[in-house]
Nucleic acid binder design. Structure first.
Length: 890
RNA sequence: GGUCGCUUAGCUCAGUUGGUUAGAGCACUGCAUUCACAUUGCAGGGGUCGGUGGUUCGAGUCCACCAGCGACCACCA
C-alpha cells in the first residue's frame, strides 16, 4: 500500500476482528506452536498465568476489561521477550450466583420455582444459560485482544476439572480434614442453601431495639421472634450488679408463652457496658450464642424453620414469617407488661447473601466443613491448613502480593478464619462425592440390628453395588476455583507435561475484592496438595469506578461497557485508559475524557506511521549511524526508554511504563525528532526508532501496532505479536550509564550541599558547615567517597575551629556522616571553585573517553560542569554579599 | 470496636529504595497551522504536596500526633 493511500484516521473497526483472527490462526497464543515455529527457544524460561475465570452469569464489565488489559500486556511482553508464555483462559460455573440468576429468570418469565422441575430438568436450564454466557464471554475476551491459549480453555465444571475436584475432596476426606458436623451456618431461606462466612454482606439497617423484662433482669434484643426458647440468661462473671446471682442458679419467670425456668450462666464474652449487661441466648440462630452454648454444653432449640417461618414451638405464632411474628410478639409482650423500652432508631448490621439471595438466618445444620485448625503431619512437623496458608506469604516467602499492604489484610483474615463450610444445598455445581446406603441384609431388607446407622462411602467415582445414594449437596464454588492454577494444567496427573512445566504459575492478577474468596483458597489448595505456592506474584487491581468515584451500577446508569467503547474508539484506547494512571490496589477512575485522550493517542501513533511510511529506508534492525546531535540524542533517549519500559514491566509497574512511553513517543519522538527529521532527513534512523517504538507499544496496544506493522513492514517478521522485544546490548550499556549518571548526580548534590549551608556570622566571619557522605545517601561507590573526601579535606584546610561533633554516627554504621564547621576565606574559596570547575570539565572529558558512548557522555558530565558553574556564580554572589556586610559593620 | 488506606494544579491521578527546578491527562489563556496528524502544533498560567511537630546535609517520600474521607473485617445481644 502506498502511504498516501493510508487513511488519515485509524479506524479500529477496519482492523481489530481481522487482526485477532490472524493472531489466533497463527497459533502463537500457544507456547508449543511458538517453539515449533522457532519463535521461542525450547529451553526458554516459562511464564505462566491463569485467567481468573469470569462467572458464567452474564457478560464482562469494565473490571474484567482492566484485568484483561493488565494480563495481556504482561503476557505479550513476555512472549516477545522470548519466554515460553502460557495464558490459560476459562470460565467459572459460579454455582450459587448462576443458579440464583437462572431461578430469578424462570420466576420472572414463567412464574415457576426450581422445585417445579426435576433436578435434571433444572440443571439443563442452568447449563444452557451457562453455555450462552460462556459464548458471550469468550467473544468479549477476544474483542479485548487477549492473547490467551484457547486450545487449553477450561471450565470449572467440565469433566477434567470435576475429576480434579473429586480427587481433591477424597484426599482431604481421607486425611481427616473434611468432616461433616452439626454446626451453626449461614442459611439463606430464599435460595434454600448455606453460604460461607465470606459470602455474607453486612448492611446497616435501622430497626427497633427492644428492652424486655426477663424475670429480675432487663434484656435487650432486636429480634424478639427468636426468644421463645431462651432459657439461659448470661452475664459477665465480674459484673457486680449481678453478683447475687450465681452460675447455674434457676429462676422462675414469666415469658412469652407462659412461666418458664431460666438458668443463670456466667460467661466472659458478655460486655457489661452494653445495654444492661445481661442477655439471653438463642444458640440455634446466633453464632455467638452458639459458642457460649458450646462452652457450657447448653442445649438449644430451632425456632425458625428453613423456610423462614416460625416453627410450632412458637405456639400461636407458628407459621408466621419473621417480621409479622415480631410485630405480634411485641404486642403480646406489651399486653403482659414485659416491654420496658423501645429504641426506634437503633442501627444494626443485618446479614445478606452477597450472591443474590436474601436475609441470612443463622441455623444449625449438618454440613461439610474443611478443618483449618486441625493438626496433621507434614514433613515430620505438625501443621494446620491455616499455617500452610501463611507460609508462602510471610516475609521471605515465595509469594509477593502487590501492593504489599494487602499482605497484612491477608494475615488478618487468616487469623479470624473459621472452618470453611463447603456444602451448598443448591443443584448447580460439583456434587459432593459421598454416597450413603442404609444397611441391608443380603436380600435387600433393612437390617434390624443396625437400624438408624448409615453406611458412608467417599470416592472419586460412585461405589459399586446397589442401594447407594449420593449426597444431594453440591460444593462451594470456591472449592473448585481453589484448584484452578493446577487443575487447568492437568492435575491430578502430576506427570502431566503442562503441570510440570508451568506450575507454580508466575503471576496471578485479580481484583482485591476476591483476595479472600479466591487467592487465599488457591494458596490453601496448592500448599496442601502440592506443597508449593500456586503463584509467585499476586497483582491486585482496583475496582473500576466512574469519573466521580462511584461504583458502576446499572441503577446509577453510569456503567461503561468495555465492548461499546471498543466498538467506537477501539480496544487499544479502552485498554490504555485502564492502564494509565492506575496502580495496584487502588481503584480505577474511568471517564469519557480519558478514553478520548487515549483514542487520540492511538491516532497519533497511526499518523506517525503515515509519516514514517513516506520515508524510504532499509528495514534492517542494526542501529543506524547517528548523523547529527539530534540523532545522538534520539538514540540515547531510545536506549533509556527501552530500559525503562522493560524495567517497569518486570516490576509490574504498567502505569509508569505506559506514561513514560507516551511522553517519549509524543513529546520526544513525534513533536521533536520528527520535526528535526524534516530538516535533517535521517530516514534509516527514523524507521529504526519507530520500529522500536511500535514494539514497545505492542503489549499495551496490540491492535494499532499490529495494524501499523502490517501496513509498513518495518522489519521482516510476519507478525508484530511475536517480534523480538527491543532488548539489545544498548540496554545493558544504558543501564550502566544510568548508574554512572546517578553517581555523577550524587557528586553534584554533594557539592551543592556544601554551598547551601553558608551563613554569615556577625563576628565578621563566614561560617560554613560541610556535610557529606553517608553510605546510604551516596551509595557505596568508591568514586563518590573519594570525591567527597576531597571536599572534606578542603574544609579541614581552612578550618580554624576544631569541630566538636566532627564525626557523628547514627544507626550504627549505616548512617555515618562528617560534620565540619569552620571559617573559610571567600577569595580562596572562589579560587578553589574555579579550580573545581576546571577539574569538573576535565572529569567530564575523561569520563567521556572512558565510557565511549556518545549518546550518554555529552550529557551527564556537561551537567556536572554546568552545575559547578552555577555553584561558582553562587559563591561569587556570596562573596559580594559578605564584602558589603563587612563594609557595613566596620 | 479493630485493621488498612487516602488527602499532590480547577478536575482525575502518577511520583519505584529520601536527592538537581514536584509531573501527566483533561480543563484554561495566547499564538500557529495547505507541509503525517484539528483526534494537530508551539508557548504559557495554575501547587504553602491536608495540618503541626520530629529525624536528616536534604522530606511529597521516613516517624509521631491531629483533621477530613474511604474501604475491609468483627459476636455488641
Amino acid at each position: 500500500m502506498e502511504p498516501t493511500d493510508i487513511p488519515k484516521a485509524y479506524d479500529p473497526k477496519e482492523w481489530e476482528t481481522k487482526l485477532y483472527q490472524k493472531w489466533e490462526e497463527s497459533g502463537f497464543f500457544n507456547p508449543d506452536t511458538c517453539i515449533e515455529k522457532g519463535v521461542t527457544k525450547t529451553d526458554a524460561k516459562t511464564f505462566s498465568i491463569v485467567l481468573p475465570p469470569p462467572n458464567v452469569t452474564g457478560h464482562l464489565h469494565a473490571g474484567h476489561a482492566a484485568m484483561l488489559a493488565v494480563e495481556d500486556s504482561i503476557v505479550r511482553y513476555h512472549r516477545m521477550k522470548g519466554d515460553r508464555t502460557l495464558w490459560i483462559p476459562g470460565t467459572d460455573h459460579a454455582a450459587i450466583a448462576t443458579q440464583s440468576k437462572v431461578e430469578s429468570i424462570i420466576r420472572k418469565e414463567e412464574g415457576k420455582t426450581r422445585h417445579d422441575f426435576t433436578r435434571g430438568e433444572f440443571l439443563d436450564r442452568v447449563n444452557r444459560f451457562a453455555q450462552d454466557s460462556h459464548d458471550r464471554i469468550t467473544h468479549q475476551v477476544r474483542k479485548m485482544g487477549s492473547s490467551v491459549d484457547w486450545s487449553r480453555e477450561a471450565y470449572t465444571l467440565d469433566e477434567k476439572r470435576s475429576f480434579a475436584v473429586r480427587t481433591a475432596f477424597k484426599r482431604l476426606y481421607d486425611d481427616g480434614l473434611i468432616y461433616q458436623g452439626d454446626r451453626i451456618v449461614n442459611w439463606d431461606p430464599e435460595l434454600q442453601t448455606t453460604v460461607s462466612d465470606d459470602e455474607i454482606e453486612r448492611k446497616e439497617e435501622k430497626s427497633p431495639f427492644y428492652y424486655l423484662q426477663y424475670g429480675p433482669f432487663v434484656i435487650s434484643t432486636s429480634r424478639p421472634e427468636t426468644k421463645f426458647g431462651d432459657k439461659y440468661v448470661v452475664m459477665h462473671p465480674n459484673d457486680e450488679r449481678y453478683a447475687e446471682y450465681i452460675h447455674g442458679q434457676k429462676i422462675s419467670l414469666e415469658w412469652i408463652s407462659g412461666t418458664i425456668t431460666a438458668t443463670v450462666i456466667k460467661d466472659e464474652s458478655v460486655d457489661p457496658s452494653f445495654g444492661t449487661g445481661v442477655m439471653t441466648i438463642t444458640p440455634w440462630h446466633d453464632a455467638v450464642d452458639f459458642d457460649i452454648a458450646e462452652r457450657h454444653t447448653l442445649d438449644g432449640e430451632q425456632i425458625i424453620g428453613f423456610d423462614g417461618k416460625l416453627l410450632p414451638i412458637a405456639g400461636p405464632f407458628s407459621g408466621l414469617p419473621i417480621l409479622e411474628a415480631r410485630k405480634k410478639i411485641i404486642e403480646l409482650l406489651t399486653e403482659k407488661g414485659l416491654v420496658v423500652k423501645i429504641d426506634e432508631n437503633y442501627v444494626h448490621n443485618i446479614a445478606t447473601n452477597s450472591r443474590g439471595g436474601g436475609l441470612i438466618e443463622p441455623q444449625i445444620k449438618k454440613q461439610w466443613f474443611i478443618a483449618v485448625n486441625k493438626e496433621f503431619e507434614r514433613d515430620g512437623d505438625m501443621v494446620t491448613l491455616k499455617q500452610l496458608m501463611r507460609r508462602p506469604v510471610r516475609p521471605g516467602g515465595e509469594i509477593t502480593i502487590l501492593p504489599k499492604q494487602f499482605e497484612k489484610v491477608y494475615f488478618h483474615w487468616i487469623d479470624n478464619l473459621r472452618d470453611w463450610c463447603i456444602s451448598r444445598q443448591i443443584w448447580f455445581g460439583h456434587r459432593i462425592p459421598v454416597w450413603y446406603k442404609k444397611p441391608t441384609t443380603d436380600n435387600g431388607q433393612l437390617t434390624t440390628d443396625r437400624k438408624g446407622e448409615i453406611e458412608m462411602y467417599c470416592g472419586v467415582e460412585a461405589p459399586e453395588g446397589d442401594g447407594w445414594e449420593q449426597d444431594p449437596d453440591t460444593l462451594d464454588t470456591w472449592f473448585s476455583s481453589g484448584l484452578w492454577t493446577f487443575s487447568t494444567l492437568g492435575w491430578p496427573d502430576e506427570k502431566a507435561k503442562d503441570f510440570v512445566d508451568y506450575h507454580p504459575t508466575s503471576l496471578l492478577e485479580t481484583g482485591y475484592d476476591i483476595l479472600f474468596f479466591w487467592v487465599a483458597r488457591m494458596i490453601l489448595m496448592s500448599e496442601y496438595f502440592l506443597n508449593t505456592q500456586p503463584f509467585d506474584t499476586v497483582y491486585l487491581h482496583g475496582l473500576v469506578r466512574d469519573s466521580q468515584g462511584r461504583k458502576m451500577s446499572k441503577s446509577l446508569g453510569n456503567t461503561i461497557d468495555p465492548l461499546d467503547v471498543s466498538e467506537v474508539h477501539g480496544a487499544d484506547a479502552m485498554r490504555l485508559s485502564l492502564l494509565s494512571g492506575t496502580t495496584p490496589g487502588n481503584d480505577i477512575r474511568l471517564s469519557d475524557e480519558k478514553i478520548l485522550s487515549m483514542r487520540n493517542f492511538t491516532n497519533k501513533l497511526w499518523n506517525l506511521a503515515r509519516y514514517v511510511g513516506t520515508m524510504s529506508g532499509d528495514t534492517g534492525t542494526a542501529e543506524p549511524e547517528a548523523k547529527s546531535d539530534a540523532d545522538k540524542d534520539l538514540i540515547q533517549k531510545l536506549d533509556t526508554i527501552v530500559a525503562s519500559v522493560t524495567r517497569h514491566l518486570d516490576h509490574y509497574e504498567l502505569s509508569m511504563a505506559v506514561d513514560e512511553l507516551r511522553d517519549f513517543t509524543w513529546g520526544d519522538f513525534a513533536d521533536w525528532y520528527v520535526e528535526t527529521h524534516k530538516v535533517e532527513h535521517n530516514d534509516a534512523l527514523l524507521r529504526y526508532a519507530f520500529d522500536i517504538i511500535i514494539r514497545l507499544w505492542h503489549p499495551f496496544m496490540p491492535f494499532v501496532t499490529e495494524a501499523i506493522h502490517q501496513t509498513l513492514h518495518l522489519d521482516e517478521s510476519e507478525l508484530l505479536m511475536v517480534a523480538k522485544w527491543p532488548e539489545n546490548e544498548n540496554i545493558r550499556k544504558t543501564t550502566a550509564n544510568e548508574n554512572r549518571f546517578a553517581l555523577v548526580k550524587n557528586i553534584i548534590i554533594g557539592i551543592r550541599n556544601v554551598r547551601a549551608t553558608y551563613r554569615i556570622d556577625p563576628a565578621k566571619k563566614l561560617i560554613v558547615s560541610a556535610y557529606g557522605g553517608s553510605e546510604k545517601a551516596f551509595g557505596e561507590n568508591e568514586l563518590v567517597f573519594k570525591r567527597l573526601a576531597r571536599i572534606s579535606e578542603i574544609r579541614h584546610m581552612d578550618s580554624q575551629v576544631p569541630p566538636k561533633d566532627s564525626l557523628r554516627i547514627q544507626s550504627g554504621l549505616l548512617y555515618a556522616y562528617l560534620h565540619i564547621e569552620g571559617i573559610i576565606d571567600i577569595e580562596a574559596e572562589r579560587t578553589r571553585l574555579g579550580k573545581e570547575l576546571a577539574e569538573a570539565e576535565k572529569y567530564a572529558t575523561s569520563l567521556e573517553a572512558k565510557l565511549g558512548n556518545p549518546s550518554f557522555t555529552d550529557r551527564a558530565p556537561v551537567t556536572v560542569v554546568a552545575q559547578t558553574k552555577a555553584t561558582l556564580d553562587e559563591t561569587n554572589a556570596k562573596a559580594d554579599e559578605l564584602r558589603s556586610h563587612l563594609a557595613s559593620i566596620s
